[in-house]
Structures are given as C-alpha cells and as structure tokens.
Design a protein around this nucleic acid. Sequence first.
DNA 1: ATCTATGCCTGGTGGC
DNA 2: TGCCACCAGGCATAGA
Length: 277
Amino acid sequence: MPELPEVETVKESLKQHLIGQKIKDLFTPYPKIIKANLDDFRNRILNQTFRDIRRYGKYLLFILDDYTLISHLRMEGKYYLRNNLADLTKHEHVIFELEDKLFLSYHDVRKFGTMELVDKGEENSHLDSKKLGPEANDSNLNIQEVYLKIHKANRPIKSILLDQSVVTGLGNIYVDESLFLSKIHPEQKGADLSYAQIEDIIRNAKVVLDKAVSLGGTTIRTYQSTLGVDGRFQNELKVHTRAGYNCYNCESKILKIKVGGRGTYFCPTCQVRFNND
DNA sequence: ATCTATGCCTGGTGGC
DNA sequence: TGCCACCAGGCATAGA
C-alpha cells in the first residue's frame, strides 16, 4: 500500500513526464474516484497544464494553472502513462488525454483512491481540514507536540502512529518497521511511553522512511510505482511480512497479530511489552 | 473528547 | 474444477 516513500517515488517519476503537458480531454469509466460533481471537475480541468507535482504525507498534489488536483492512492492506486487508449486495462478509472498521444491513466483495482480539485492556493487549507500532523520524516518536526499527542492517548502505539493527525506518511509497513527498530511492542499504550521512547520512535521512523525513499519504496502485494518499476525496500524489511521467520537480532520467530484491526508483525523478544502501572 | 466499528471495493486464497 | 466465505486495509463517517 502506497505510504510516504511510494507516493514520493510516484511523484518523482511523474514529474519527469507531466510537467508542461496540457489536459486535452478526460475519460472517466468509473467516476466515483472523483469526489465532486463530475461535470464541474471536467469543465475546470480541461485545458489546464501540469506546472508542478508535490506531495504531503500520502497525498499527491498536481499543480495546474488555476487548480490543484489532490490525489490519494489509498490501498493500491497507481498512475500509468500510455501512448494508446487501446492499451487500457480493466481497472483504469480516470484517464487524462494529454498532447502528442500521451495519456495519464489512474489504475485502482479496489477503487478506494480519491481525486479532488481545489482552487490553486487552496491546497494547504484543504489539507489542513484533514487535520494532518507533521510528516514523520520532517527534520524540523516538533517532537514536543508529537510527544504530547502520543502520551495522552490510551490506545496502542501502532494505532496512534497510523493516525495521520498525529504524524503523517506512515502506513502499516513502516509503522511495523519503526517500532521494531525502537524495540517497542505494537500494543504498548501511548500513555506508557516516555519522552525518550517517543523521540526514539520518531527518529527511527525517519531513518526507515528516508531509506525507503532512497530505494524507491517497497513492492509487496500489488504496489508498483508508475511505469511498472518496482521499489527495492522490501529487501530491507526486518519484520513486516516475515511471520514465522527468525528475527535478525535474536533467535525468536517473528509473530503476526492484529492490532486495531491491522495485520501487525513484531519480534516477541526484541519488542517486549512493559508494565508501567 | 476518545476511541471503536463500519463501509467502501476486488482479487487471491483456502476449505470442501 | 467450482463455489463460497473470508481476508487485505486508509480513510471518512457514524456510533458508543
């Protein structure tokens, strides 16, 4: 599932091809991806040119002349560039016709992804309305603020880190990896954690995210970045997807449990739950 | 105010 | 082989 490193990878590869391209037409075989009135969306986006592509957390921001297209890939959304409409496959739901027989196509088997169009300059306030926290790999992240949010919460640290209003950019893969590096049990309550432990978790989250970005993200299950390029971080995973295999730090076998409804991998020896009563 | 449950979706998998 | 129940899960929303 695309998390911060995967979305960053998509952004960078799309930038190579889209900047300066004008949207000549729009096809929507499955319009529910677009979270607004379709006619209005279409009327506004036609003849707009891609000027820049940015990212905040897991959101992609396509900066056009007068609008910003905000795209979330959710579970398995991906963008393809095609040279022929005849090449389209079953799950391509929104297709932008560009110039020179080039098409930008949004592919999403589960149809969970979303697109919204806002006036240019409104993207920040639009994202503000989603109450997103700071990016988990932001070197200027205010640790004190994050500490206060985590320390007052009486839910598992795994659930807190998946909550994008605390920090944004982490998903199921990188939360598991960050907690392993921090030697914290995923079910440990936020309120149990000290300032130093939370600082350590945030530091490790940045280490994991930065390395994943540098390797083009993680390819497991169905994720591939644009143009069918695989990421390489899956070779670096310490716990995620490794249920039943030996921990790299000790002899224990990695376990898989459910935390807050999410499949969660951890080492029962390295990540011991502590009692803080 | 916090936290949990549900719905959105389809392909893959395992049981029979 | 075919059928079917179940699972994967980010986020918005409803409910406790």
